[in-house]
Design a protein around this nucleic acid. Sequence first.
DNA 1: TTTAATTTTTAGACAAGTCTAAAAATTAGT
DNA 2: ACTAATTTTTAGACTTGTCTAAAAATTAAA
Lengths: 218, 218
Amino acid sequence: MFSQSEENYIKTVYHLSIDFDGGISTNAIAKALETKASSVTDMVKKLSEKEVVIYKKYQGVTLTDFGKKVAASIIRKHRLWEVFLVDKLNFSWDEVHEVAEQLEHIKSPKLISELDAFLGYPKQDPHGDPIPDAEGNIHQINKKLLSLLSVGEEGVCVGVDDTSSEFLKFLDKQGIGLGNRIKIVEIEPFDGSFVIEVNEKVLTISNKIASNLYIQKR
Amino acid sequence: MFSQSEENYIKTVYHLSIDFDGGISTNAIAKALETKASSVTDMVKKLSEKEVVIYKKYQGVTLTDFGKKVAASIIRKHRLWEVFLVDKLNFSWDEVHEVAEQLEHIKSPKLISELDAFLGYPKQDPHGDPIPDAEGNIHQINKKLLSLLSVGEEGVCVGVDDTSSEFLKFLDKQGIGLGNRIKIVEIEPFDGSFVIEVNEKVLTISNKIASNLYIQKR
DNA sequence: TTTAATTTTTAGACAAGTCTAAAAATTAGT
DNA sequence: ACTAATTTTTAGACTTGTCTAAAAATTAAA
Ligand SMILES: [Mn+2]
Ligand SMILES: [Mn+2]
Ligand SMILES: [Mn+2]
Ligand SMILES: [Mn+2]
């Protein structure tokens, strides 16, 4: 149906569309895929032929409903494989992404439905991101960036925004992980850093760290 | 290191080398890969540059020691994935091959060593074929084609030569599977067909079937 | 051993995906 | 509103892997 390269473009447009509404620029796609804008223009024309995106010159691209379904199915595979790697093959959450980038392109409906069942129909991947269902529906859980909470508020860490290996390893080092209960002890007005309590310990994290942690209250 | 296409050529040369010694012809490779001999010539030149095969014009190709190691590692992945699909994901032995053809190209040493451990270090794949170890050594078990046995001989079915879906489904239908004890009751001289006893039942199979079943004696 | 058939290689073309450099369009600055 | 900076597209080229058609080499047949 779609080549590996086409799938990567579709997925990227989907991800970029989440925190920006309106057409996604060829430049933005190029930066995300570490390629050149001219290559993106070519590909985007092809995807528009295939009715995956809507594209008008100089206007950026948006996914069609069909395109969104395709994107969801690729992301579903990516996240199911990430769960497999962590739950069954002893990968840590900072090691799974690049392997999942390869595995997400394997074509076999049976493989994915059986994998889903084998994993016990997980709802989130190792980074707390929702796993689309077989129809492409994505159920976002209710969560807030830690950086938006006030002193005294508390909740459970349910996700990360940045999923880079560096950030995840940093969290491991600090002893912060999904499922941990976190309470805001103090917010430093000068640099916006947070003093939090997690796992019986009190520690200070920069505002940048706080803006990459998702908390679910109550 | 090697592209998907290069890996497919390497694997094919390896497989063709098993039942033929001497250089493998470009035509033979072309037929196996369902491509054209001219394409094979091009690829074989490239692989020879990369020291994977030895190639002299009109002489066919043979794998170097390095090439054999590469082939073994691809086959190792293919067969481990086949075990995974059957043992963990409810695939039947006739469904695994095409998915394994895709999975064998995933690049991640950790993935394969962990998968191997997760599966309990299997020695054979679902078709009875040996799984190369991490160093590329292949331990062939002692087996004989059923068609080479005589009346009265018996043993355990440990493998199949043809792994096509049609043949495997046929065996399922007849109730013949790996691990079954099979005894030669009679051999029909006219057409070489075999009357065998398997699972308390007596049945007749053609010589062609008998030449695709591997038996381990005692 | 000469000719005929077959196999293998070469030459040239094509599709997919990418790149660089230049042109065109848009956006920003004054 | 005009010019300058930036973004986006086009044009042309390159790589990988493939194909067809023709030439060359090998093998088989007479
Ligand atoms: Mn990921
Ligand atoms: Mn993830
Ligand atoms: Mn197979
Ligand atoms: Mn097999």
